[in-house]
Amino acid sequence: MSDHTATGNGAVAEAQHEHPSYQRHHFETVDQQFDATNFAMWLFLLTEIMFFGGLFVSYLIMRNWYYPAFVEGSHQLSILWGTSNTAVLICSSFTMAMGVWAAEMHRKKSLLLFIGLTFVLGVAFLGIKYIEWHEKWEKHHVPGIHYSDASFLNPASDPEVYKEYHDKPLAPDMAAKTEEYFFLYFAMTGMHALHMVIGVGLLVYIFFRARTGAYTNGHFTFVENFGLYWHFVDIIWIFLYPLLYLISRY
C-alpha cells in the first residue's frame, strides 16, 4: 500500500498500463481495492457475529432455565483439554498476526514460517477437539444418538468426574435436560470447528501461494483478510470457553 505513487491530479483513470497486475480492472486504484475488500471482510464478520448470535441467545435462555443440568453437564468437559485448546488457539492467533506482519514487511520466509505454525496450531486445536468429542461419544453424551443421562441420575457411576466435583444426583426431568446442554455444546463447538476446518483449508492454500511469492510483493490483502477471519474464529472460542467449560467449577 505504501509504495503506491499515483498522479492524483485528475479523476479520470488514464494511466491504465501503470496498474500492477493484481489490480482488478473495475477498481480505480490499488488502495480502493484494498479498502473495498477489507471492508467487505468486516461486513462478512458482522454477519458471522449475528450467525453465532442466534446460538448464544439459545444458550443463554436454556442455561437460565436448566442451570443445574448445565452445571453438571459442564463438569463432564475436561478443563485441561479446554484450557489448553484456548491457549493453542490464542497462540495461533498470534502466529497469524505475525504472518500478516511478515507479509507487510515483504518477508517471504517468515511469512511461510508463521503460516505454517498457524496451520499446525489450527490442526492441533481440531485434534484436541476430536479427542474431547470422542470421549463424549464413548460416554454416550452425544445428544440424539443413544444418549444416556446415567452420569447425571447417578453421578457416582462416573467416578472420574465424581471424585472431583461430588455432584448430587439430578431429578430425572432435570437430568434429561443435560441433553439440551450437550446439544448446544455440540452445535456451538461444531459450528466453531466447521469454521476452523475452512480456515485450516485456506491456510494450506495461502501457504502454497506464498511459496510463489504471491503475498510478499506488496499485495497482501488476502492474507490480511484471512487474518481477520482467523482472529474472529478465535474470539468466538474465547467466549465459548467460559460459557461451556467454566459454568461452575467450585
Binding site: 458482522l46 454477519t47 449475528m50 450467525f51 448470535g53 459450528m191
Partner: peptide, 8 residues
C-alpha cells in the same frame, strides 16, 4: 445483519 440469524 438480519439474515444470518434466520440462517442459524
Amino acid at each position: 445483519l438480519g439474515t444470518p440469524v434466520l440462517a442459524i
